[in-house]
């Protein structure tokens, strides 16, 4: 990047670093990936997942001064915000048909070749579409476990269930998912 093409008409007033900058940087680095993957398991396109992720962080940062670390870690709190936003989104969306473009542009894969990447994209599209055919409760368990990477104990805390119950329900959900994929 080299010299300016022209001078600026009217620069805005300078200001210090915003108060939210610190929690955003730290929270984003640690939690954005797991929360995004949770959302991405639940919605079919990256644009919607990114909108919901951004809204989750904007709401969390807006309430950051009310967050009390002694009441629990940040991630479950962020996930609860994401869950509420997702629920609202799904309710608003209703039965509207959506055909997203660039469906898997956000898929991370260290493929040795374009062919491998294509095969993996097909498999991921199949798996995530199958997850979204499950009942709401099953989708939630699979997305929290394999999307956000929570342990069954953490899922239990988040959903108010015993860990053993989470495991049983999760495995049943996987069984139903396997049936969907076998059709």
């Amino acid at each position: 990047m080299t010299r300016p093409l022209q001078a600026l008409p009217s620069p805005p007033p300078a200001g210090g670093a915003p108060a939210h900058a610190e929690p955003l940087g730290a929270w984003w680095a640690e939690h954005s990936g797991p929360i995004y993957r949770y959302l991405r398991f639940r919605v079919p396109d990256p644009d919607t997942a990114e909108d919901l992720l951004a809204e989750t962080f904007v709401r969390a940062l807006g309430a950051a001064d009310r967050y009390d670390p002694s009441r629990g870690p940040v991630r479950p709190w962020l996930l609860r915000i994401a869950q509420n936003l997702l629920r609202d989104h799904l309710r608003r969306q209703g039965r509207r048909l959506q055909v997203p473009l660039a469906r898997l542009r956000d898929l991370v894969h260290e493929s040795a070749s374009p062919e491998e990447r294509l095969l993996w994209e097909e498999e991921v599209a199949l798996l995530t579409a199958a997850v979204r055919t499950l009942a709401e409760r099953d989708q939630e368990l699979v997305s929290l476990r394999y999307g956000s990477g929570l342990s069954t104990a953490e899922i239990g805390e988040l959903l108010g269930l015993r860990e053993a119950t989470v495991r049983t329900r999760l495995w049943r959900a996987l069984g139903r998912l396997r049936e969907v994929l076998a059709r």
């Binding site: 915003p18 955003l24 954005s32 991370v108 995530t128």
Partner: peptide
């Protein structure tokens, strides 16, 4: 094994 990542500019947009 499924991994998704949001676009790199999203953090700056939120800020």
């Amino acid at each position: 094994a499924i991994a998704f990542e949001p676009r790199a500019s999203l953090e700056a947009e939120i800020a």
